Simulated scan of single mutants.
Amino acid sequence: MLNGCYLTPPEPKVITITKPVPILPPLYLLNDIALSHPPINTNRELLKFAVKAHNQKVLCNLDKAALRAWRAKYE
């Protein structure tokens, strides 16, 4: 007889909170590179190799240093 006074309980609401979790590169990929070279027979080959190798090594190590700094923010 008192159905009008009866309150149905509200259905529970599920709240999902997502938090981004960075996936960090493994440490072995962040090591600086070692430099190896092919046989060099002339001074010209030596100069070309030296310039190319130096540029590649500098760029690679700068890139890896930036990755290490980025990884350090999340550790």
Rank of each mutant, 00 (worst) to 15 (best):
I15R: 11
L35R: 14
K52I: 02
M1I: 05
E75Y: 12
T16W: 04
N61D: 11
W70V: 01
H37A: 11
V58E: 08
P39V: 10
L46R: 15
P9D: 01
V51C: 08
A72I: 00
K19S: 07
P20A: 00
N43F: 14
P25V: 04
S36C: 10
K19C: 02
L30S: 02
C5F: 08
D63L: 12
P10M: 00
L24V: 03
N41K: 15
L30A: 06
A66L: 12
P9Q: 08
P25W: 05
V14D: 00
H54Y: 13
L46S: 10
K57T: 13
K73V: 02
E45I: 10
L2S: 07
K73R: 14
I23H: 09
A66S: 11
K52C: 05
L29D: 13
V21S: 07
P25M: 00
N43G: 07
Y74F: 14
P20G: 03
H37T: 14
H37M: 14
R68S: 02
L24R: 00
A50I: 13
A65D: 07
V51F: 04
L62E: 05
K73F: 06
A34L: 14
K52G: 06
P38H: 05
T42I: 07
I23A: 00
V58W: 00
N3D: 04
L59N: 11
V58N: 04
N31E: 10
P22E: 00
F49S: 00
R71I: 00
I15H: 13
V14P: 07
M1L: 03
K48R: 13
E45D: 09
P38T: 06
C60L: 09
I17E: 13
E75N: 09
N41P: 00
N41C: 11
P12A: 00
L67E: 09
K19N: 09
D63F: 14
P22S: 01
N43W: 13
K48E: 14
K52T: 09
G4F: 10
L59E: 12
H37V: 10
T18M: 13
K13H: 09
R71H: 06
K73Y: 07
K13V: 13
Y6P: 01
P10N: 05
I33V: 15
A66I: 09
N43K: 12
S36G: 11
A65C: 00
L2T: 05
V21G: 00
F49L: 11
A72G: 04
C5H: 06
L46G: 13
E75G: 02
P38M: 02
A72F: 02
I40F: 02
R71T: 03
V58S: 08
P38F: 06
N3H: 06
K57R: 12
I33M: 12
L30Q: 04
N41W: 10
N3F: 13
L47R: 03
V51P: 08
P20H: 06
E45S: 06
I17M: 12
